[in-house]
C-alpha cells in the first residue's frame, strides 16, 4: 500500500470526533496528508508495517500522531508505549486527545513520553482552535527538526 506523504496520523475510534478533528484542521488551512485509523491495533500495524499494512515503508514516518486514549482492542496508552519504545518511531511527536483534563491517564502519557495533549472541548469553536494550534505547532516543529 502506498502511503507516501502521510504527515498527520489520526487515531480515533469515534467517527464524529474524527470528523470534527479533520474539519477543525481543514478550517485552519492545515491541508497536509492525513490518515484516520479507527483503533490502536490498526495504528500499530500502520506504524510498524504489520498486519494489513505489511510491506509499508516504515521509514516514511508521519510528522505528528494525534492519538485518542480510549479505544477498543489496543488503547492509546499501549500505542504510545510501543511508539516511544522503538528507536525508529520514538521521535515522532504524539499529541494525546482526551475528553477531560481530569483523565488520570494524562500523567501516564507524559511519563511515557507524550509530547502534548488536547482536551476535546464540548464547544466546537474552542475545540477547533485547540486542535489546529497544536497540530500546526507539531507539524512545523517536526519539519524543522526532521
Amino acid at each position: 500500500m502506498e502511503n507516501k506523504g502521510v504527515e498527520i496520523l489520526l487515531v480515533e475510534d469515534n467517527l464524529n470526533d474524527a470528523e470534527l478533528t479533520v474539519r477543525a484542521l481543514r478550517k485552519n488551512n492545515i491541508t497536509n496528508e492525513l490518515i484516520h485509523l479507527k483503533d490502536g491495533a490498526e495504528a500499530l500495524d500502520f506504524i510498524f508495517g504489520t498486519g494489513s499494512y505489511k510491506g509499508r515503508d516504515i521509514n516514511n514516518r508521519p510528522k505528528v500522531i494525534l492519538l485518542d486514549l480510549k479505544m477498543p482492542k489496543v488503547d492509546g496508552i499501549e500505542v504510545l508505549r510501543r511508539i516511544k519504545e522503538n528507536d525508529l518511531t520514538k521521535k515522532i511527536p504524539v499529541v494525546i486527545l482526551t475528553s477531560s483534563k481530569e483523565d488520570p491517564d494524562i500523567r501516564t502519557c507524559y511519563e511515557l513520553g507524550a509530547n502534548s495533549y488536547i482536551v476535546k472541548p464540548v464547544e466546537f469553536d474552542n475545540f477547533q482552535k485547540a486542535v489546529s494550534d497544536l497540530g500546526l505547532y507539531w507539524l512545523l516543529l517536526n519539519q524543522t527538526t526532521g
Binding site: 470534527l20 488520570p104 464540548v122
Partner: peptide, 25 residues
C-alpha cells in the same frame, strides 16, 4: 468512582461534543 468519573467525562462528553460540533457545522 475514578473510572466512573473517567467514563462520565469521556462518554458523556463525546455525544455532547457531537451535538455541539454538528450544530456548529
Amino acid at each position: 468512582m475514578e473510572s466512573f468519573s473517567y467514563s462520565v467525562s469521556h462518554d458523556l462528553r463525546a455525544p455532547l461534543r457531537a451535538v455541539s460540533g454538528y450544530a456548529r457545522m
